[in-house]
Simulated scan of single mutants.
Amino acid sequence: MLLDFNCGGWDKEYAKRYNSLLNIEILPIRFGHVDTLVSIGLDIDVFETLHAMGIAPLCYQRHELYPDLARQVLATAHIGYDDPSKPTYENCSYLA
């Protein structure tokens, strides 16, 4: 579904971002990627923490994927800064 200027309240920039995301295949993943966690040495800590919280099984289950919804969120996402002259992690906010 290609979006046009101001289609459904979307501005031109959001529509452009969304349309470019249509070319991206969004595949389902699991929450914890074991190989990555092992390579950075966090696998034991992460899985022990998740196990203690009682949610470790979530890392191994596939979850339903909504590619179009993911594209909409990514297309409309905006990172802003409380003080734009000092764009740091501490003073940023994510808006979708």
Rank of each mutant, 00 (worst) to 15 (best):
M1R: 05
M1S: 06
L2K: 07
L3G: 02
L3C: 07
D4G: 03
F5M: 11
N6F: 11
N6W: 12
N6S: 11
G8D: 14
G8V: 03
G9F: 01
W10E: 02
W10I: 01
D11C: 05
E13C: 10
Y14V: 09
Y14I: 07
A15G: 13
K16R: 09
R17S: 11
Y18R: 01
Y18E: 00
Y18P: 00
S20L: 08
L22W: 13
L22A: 11
L22K: 10
N23W: 12
N23V: 08
N23C: 15
N23S: 15
N23M: 15
I24T: 09
I24G: 06
I24K: 14
E25R: 10
E25S: 04
L27K: 10
L27N: 12
I29A: 12
I29L: 14
F31N: 12
F31C: 10
F31R: 12
F31T: 14
G32N: 05
H33K: 10
H33Y: 09
V34G: 03
D35I: 12
D35L: 12
T36H: 12
V38Y: 15
S39F: 09
S39W: 09
S39T: 05
I40C: 05
G41C: 06
G41F: 09
L42T: 11
L42C: 11
D43M: 07
D43I: 04
D45P: 04
V46I: 10
F47P: 00
F47M: 09
F47A: 07
F47S: 14
F47C: 08
E48F: 15
E48W: 11
L50V: 04
H51Q: 09
A52P: 02
M53Y: 13
M53G: 04
G54M: 04
G54T: 13
I55D: 13
P57R: 13
P57T: 05
L58M: 15
L58P: 00
Y60A: 15
Q61W: 14
Q61N: 15
R62C: 08
R62D: 09
R62T: 07
H63Y: 15
E64N: 06
L65A: 06
L65E: 07
Y66L: 04
P67D: 15
L69E: 10
L69Y: 11
A70V: 06
Q72G: 06
Q72S: 12
V73S: 03
V73Y: 03
L74T: 00
L74E: 01
L74R: 01
A75Q: 00
T76K: 03
T76D: 01
A77D: 02
A77Q: 06
A77K: 11
I79Y: 00
I79H: 00
G80K: 02
G80E: 03
Y81H: 15
D82P: 00
D82K: 04
P84H: 00
S85E: 14
K86S: 14
K86F: 15
P87Y: 01
P87W: 01
P87G: 01
T88A: 02
T88Q: 02
T88R: 05
Y89I: 08
E90I: 02
N91I: 02
C92H: 05
S93K: 06
A96F: 01
